[in-house]
Structure formats: C-alpha cells, structure tokens
Design a protein around this nucleic acid. Structure first.
Lengths: 344, 344
DNA sequence: GTGAAAGCGCTAACAC
DNA sequence: GTGTTAGCGCTTTCAC
C-alpha cells in the first residue's frame, strides 16, 4: 500500500487539506464534528504526516541534538553518564514530537567549534543540549550561540554565559556527605579533589569545606589531595594519605572513579573498608554497586537534568521566550557498604 | 545573513541549479572547470544543502536508527555496551551523509512491535540496526521487516530470520579462553553459563566445552552452573562452586558481571585471586579494568560490529542489493591480573 | 470555522 | 556536459 498523504485524508474526509493539517497539529478553530470526520479518515488510511515535508514547510527540523564529550577520549569510560543523560533526554523528546540526535565530540580537538557549526548547519536542529564539561568550554558554547540555535547547558560549573542551564546542587550534597561522615564519628576526613576542568566537580570541594565547618571540624591542607577524576589519581591519593603518619579514617572522593582507586589501594595495603577506613564517592556510577564493599556515594540526577533541559527547549519552541532561569535538580545520598562508624 | 539556497549558488556560479546539485552530490558528468566555479560559489556563500528539502525530494531521510534494549529495564546497567555500539555506528554514519537516531526499547513490553512500527512510520529511517538481545526477538524482527526498512541485526544468536547480520565468534573465543586456562595448568575449570534469552551468550557454553575437549580435559556437569547474566547469579554460582568438596581452580563466566560476582564471593570467602583461584569473564566491560585484580576477559568488538552494520546499510542504499552474507568480527583475549598458573 | 493558492529548497526525469 | 520542468507533501498566508 502506497503511503497515504494529506490529500488522501482530505478527500476521504471531504474537507480541505488545511483542515486536516489543523487536526493533525491540534490547532483550534475546528468544529468537533469535523475533527472526528478527519480523525476517522486518518485512522482508516493509517496516515502519518511526512516529516520531511513538514520540516521543509515549517522551517523546523523537530530534532534536538545532545552534545557530550566523546568517551573514547578518556581512559575511564563515562558510559553510565552518557546513557543516563540520553535516557532523560529521550523521555522528554517523547512528550513532544521530537527526535534526538547524539553527538559525542572531543573538546580538546582544535576544530571542535567548526565541527559543531557544521553539524548545526547540516541538520539545523531546533535546539541543543550541551553536557558538562563541554558546557564550560567557551569556544564550544560560543560556536553554538553564534548560530542562534536555542541552547541549554547541563551542569555548567559557574553560571557563566547567558544561555539557560540545568544543574545539580554539588556544593550542598557534598556538604551533606561530609556531615554524614562526621556524624559517624570521623574526625580526620580526607578529600580527593577532581579535575578543575570539570567545574561542577570543583564545587564539591567547597561543599566538603562547608560540611567540615558545619560539623565543627577543622580543614587541614594535608587532607585535601588533588586528583584528576581518574582511577589512577584516586590510587595515588590513597597511597599518599594511607601511608602518612596520621592517616584519615574516612576518604571522600569527588567522583566514584577516584573512590574506586582509593578502595583498590586500601585493598592492596590490607586496610579494611569500612572497618578501618570509610570511603565515599560521588556520581553513583554503575561501578559503585558492583564493587565489594558497595560504595556509599551521591546519585547525580543526570537523567532528570537532561530531561529538564529538553523540556526547556520544547518550551522555548512554543514561542515562550521568557528565560525562566536555571533549573536545579538535587542529588541524593546513597548510603551503601563502604562507610561505617569511625574506628576507636 | 539569510541562509543561501541552491538558487543563490547557481546564480553566483552562472550555472543551473541542476549543475550545483551534481557538484554537491558528487555526481559525474560535470566539467572540472564548472565544478570549481560551483565550489567557489558554495564556499563564498557558505552554502549548506537543506536536509528537509533534500529528504522530501529524494524520498530518503538520511537517517538510521539504532535500536537496543532499554538499560533501565535491568538491574545491571549495560551502558558500556550501548555507548560502544553507538560509537561504532556513529563512525560509520560519518563516512556517509547520515545521522543516527537512538531508540532504546523494552522488549518485554506487550506493544514493542507497534511502538517500533510507529517509530518507523514517523521518521522513515533509511535503515535500522537492531542489537542483541532484541535481534533474537521474532516479534521485533518481524515488525521491522514488515515495514520493508533495510535491517541489519547485530549478534543474533543463531542466524534465524533472513535479514543480514553482523556477529562475533563467541564460540571460538570461548574455546580459546578455556584452552588458555588449561595451558596455565588448570584441570578443574568451571563455567558459569549466561541467560539463555541472550543467545549469543549460549554459544559461549559450547565454546567452553570445545575448549575442554581440545585441551584433553573432561567436561563435568557439576562444574557448569546456570546464571542469568547478573552479578547476583555470579555470586550464587561462586558460592556453590567454592564451597563444594572439590572446588575448581579456575572459573570462567559467560559475562563480566557474573565474573565480578565470582570475585566478590572469593574476596568474601578469603580465596585469593589469582593465587588460589583464576577468574575469567567475557565482554570486557569497563568494570573489568576497574576492579582489583583486573579481570582477564574477552573484548567483544561491539563498536566494530555496529560500524560494520551501518556500513552494510550504507552499501544497501547504493542499490547494492546483493546480500553479501553475514559479517563476523572476532573478539580478542584480554589477559589481565585475575588469571595465573594453577596452585599445586 | 474553513479553504485556495503559493511556496519551502531540493531531486528526478528528460530534453538538449 | 548542462539546463528545464515538475513535483515531493506539507505549512503559511490570506481570503471568505
């Protein structure tokens, strides 16, 4: 059966194609009775509007692009992050009539900006969701904004730039985790800081310091180690901390990969987790539940953030060009097996 | 600047729009000199063909869809698999002029088939890549084939159905892993079988049996435990095996999650890996490198398989309707820290 | 509330 | 080799 067109539907329903168009697009100004006639014709012919034709005529692509850092650029795959964001974005796309294109890209490349320009000019998406850490790269943000395509940034470190964004409460939940560790009786709580390029992660250090203060603990320089978000750097930090004269009884890492590195080293050195050492991470990657003991961490609401970002885009399509400010989706403490009361 | 159209280019170059079209689409029958004139005009105007117009006129969407099982349907996220397939598929898309739509879906849902039909009717993709285990679900395969959309299946368990497919050599590499363990002096090599719903995984049991035979070892029923691909089932299997009167010295699990479960239990029971027990997995998920000791496993070439699948689709677009048979991409043994010589 | 006509920016078929 | 002419199947504009 050759696909039915709008003309076929119009003929069968005995109306003009414009009326069919109105029904399909849920426009007002159609009598209920007419609408039903058209609906019946649509059902009988199994009519589906041709997207290409619609896009051409309406100057909209009904396409959003999710841009994120290409995982193969790193040793440690951040697949879980990517998939969770995709899930959220897809969920929102389904509420509208939108499809999602994915575009991993490497921001270290010289020509990210021209690559992204080309992408935009080729597919002319109706909007773009830009994930961290790309959402902090001025070259990338600038390239997108220059095309005039609606842009929502996910987890930009600071609210730099003037495009809208969605973020989580990194600072607050890091303080919460620190307070939780303190409540278990830990006095020497170390922190493994993350890659400063990923600005959202930088906020976690602030949160850690907040948490110490709120718990009446003093911040000590020797308890803050710089990492780079990789497992290896977590291992290095743990080696430094655990082999020091006065080792901490709890280590809070700014991401789960580094926390996993800490646990590897503890394991190797024969330090029992959580009996002798509590370890906490951040992000709640799949690994957190897979290792033994399962990692206490903070669930970063990536899926909800991406969903919120796409919903913002959909809203902006509807002419609602009132910038309604950032959306903050809070993270959740996931208490598992790797944290326990401080040893006496 | 209002976007340049094909007419603008034609005017500036002093040729007809058809000639511009020929240059853009790399068609033959254009004089080199003319081609250059047109190219110059394109560059000067920064012309990009409008996809919607092209799609409408050519009856092609220049879109492929990658369909896979929705990860949130499982306890254990298979994010790594998904991202690797996406990477491969995207790589191939870039060689042509194609974009990739992703569509996770739950095959347990009653209405997967109608959901997929709707998707196809809405976006009218030029082709579909269907990943395992969906590639084994007759309802899904049938729904897609009924629409007449070119379909490539990735890792279908058996070569059932008549659509083309891409697969890896599960049986052969499982035999290879088994021979490797035998070559380390292991006599009692156990196998944790996977979920039979995932048919490719079933081939691994066959391969294990092949490997035993090739190494002159006898297959023993009590050394083959049924799992369901989850960490938990790996734990259960390990508990059974390690607490038996005559425990194995090596355990080969049909996937990495189950192998991770085995290692968790070994850890808990105080069985040293790899000194007292060698553990091997299959798939090479991110976890394999993250745990300690790092897991010996088999790298499943998901990215290359997805790439090959999309390349097949691109080929089929070019009218090449000659079915050129399945493509087999071999897996690779990744020897890491979790396997060693058998204890005396 | 409904319809007629005019494109949107390309490709396809065929003429020259 | 290159150009001409018709659409592709919708939305938009404006008339009624």
């Amino acid at each position: 059966m050759p696909k039915a067109t709008i003309d076929d539907v119009a003929e069968l329903a005995g109306v003009s194609i414009k009326t069919v168009s109105r029904v399909v697009n849920r426009e007002p100004n159609v009598r209920e009775q007419t609408r039903e006639k058209v609906q019946n014709a649509i059902t009988r012919l199994n009519y589906r509007p041709n997207k290409a034709a619609r896009n051409l005529a309406s100057h909209h692509s009904h396409l959003f692009v999710l841009i994120y850092d290409d995982p193969s650029a790193y040793e440690v795959p951040s697949a879980g992050f990517i998939v969770r964001m995709q899930q959220g974005a897809l969920r929102a796309c389904r509420t509208g009539d939108y499809e999602l294109l994915i575009h991993p890209c490497r921001y270290r490349n010289e020509n990210v900006d021209s690559e992204i320009r080309t992408l935009i000019e080729r597919v002319r998406p109706d909007g773009i969701v830009l994930a961290a850490p790309l959402s902090n790269v001025p070259r990338v943000v600038g390239a997108i904004e220059a095309t005039g395509t609606p842009l929502i940034r996910v987890s930009p470190g600071k609210a730099n730039g003037d495009s809208q964004y969605v973020a989580t409460n990194d600072r607050e939940f890091s303080a919460e985790m620190t307070r939780y560790l303190a409540s278990l009786g830990h006095k020497r709580i170390a922190f493994v800081a993350g890659n400063p390029a990923h600005e959202a992660v930088a906020n976690r250090l602030e949160g850690y310091l907040d948490g110490l203060e709120q718990s009446g603990l003093e911040a000590r320089d020797e308890l803050v180690i710089k990492g780079d978000n990789s497992i290896r750097s977590g291992e290095a930090a743990a080696a430094l901390l655990l082999e020091s004269p006065d080792p901490p009884t709890a280590i809070f890492a700014a991401n789960d990969d580094m926390a996993a590195g800490v646990m590897r080293v503890a394991n190797r050195l024969g330090v029992k987790v959580p009996d002798q050492l509590s370890v906490a991470g951040c992000d709640d990657i799949a690994l957190a539940q897979q290792i033994y003991p399962a990692l206490t961490t903070i669930n970063q609401p990536l899926s909800q953030m991406a969903e919120a970002a796409v919903l913002k885009l959909i809203k902006s399509q509807r002419g609602n060009n009132d910038v309604d400010g950032p959306t903050i989706v809070p993270g959740t403490l996931m208490i598992r097996e790797s944290t326990a009361a401080a040893p006496d």
